[in-house]
Amino acid sequence: MSDSEGDTQSELEALFEPQGTVESLTRWERVKQQYDLYVRAPLKVAINDWRTVVGLGLLILFGLAGTVGVWFTAAPSSGQAPFLLGPFENWAYPLGTDVLGRPIHTQLIHATPAMFQMILGGAGLAIGLATVVGLLSGFLRDTVVDRVLMTIADVVITIPGLPLVMVLVAVFQPRNPYVVGVLLGLDAWPALARQIRSQVLSIREEHYVEASRIMGLRIWTILRRDLLGQLTPYIAINAALAARGIIFGSVGLYFIGVLPFNALNWGVMMNMAYASGALNETAKLHWLLWPMLTIFLLSVSFVLLSQGLDSVFNVRLRARHAQTAGEGDTSASKGEHDNA
């Protein structure tokens, strides 16, 4: 879905073509080639795409806010500042304050670490589970294991996520952000697991995996060398999207007040602002809008990142196809092949 600038496309594809012949490479040369193929080339494609740059940039800012920012700003407390300052009125509190006199900006900053913990817990669980299930299922296609795993995936995909999370929250009353994240990530893994499974199936069909099997390489060697290498970008894209899901879910549940209010969260801010009638009182509106904007920006960074990664993946895929396309069809037949 994401062709970036067509002009540079072919040059970028060329990056993924291995230089030189495969035989007679020293160990060092091989390492360098791997580095070029898996690190330098993707990075180059990535910085050529504004989406990756903006997405990563925003994410780094949030990361800084969640680490250094927490360290530099005092935790917000009631009565610390004048009540309900508007944004940009007092530069000590650039985003304004709420009805209890807590600065908005420190509230936003101090809610960031817990958000990242939730994302780590949730996306970590979703990706981990999906990868294991997808790989297992793909490799053991049409066995009992495959069928059982896919049935479980189908069951989980069918149960609506938030209602399930709400019941679980009601029963277990989690407070640890990692646990909240894990609960929210519970319904994110099946779709990805299915996608990874079908990726594995299609990669299995490809000749070189077949070849390495014939050459007697053990299954885990094949996995490590060929599959994981190809699935990594794929998994990364989905991790970014799962992160967005965790943000949406957690903020939503905090906002309606289902999750316990022990931690600072943008959703909690929205809840308090909304409950105090921020929509009706212009003086309180900024209290609601800033967390909304923050959520939006963090989500944008993940969405952009996923799209950027997708284009890295695509360029690489095309380059690989060009390589395997064979002798007779090099540049001369470009036109003919476009329509074939």
Binding site: G328, A332, S333, G335, N339
Partner: peptide, 22 residues
Amino acid sequence: GESGSGKSMFAASLLDGVVEPG
């Protein structure tokens, strides 16, 4: 002609059917 010699393009031109952006 060999593949890539332009023969398919010639053929498609006879009904003005060369694919875009050709």
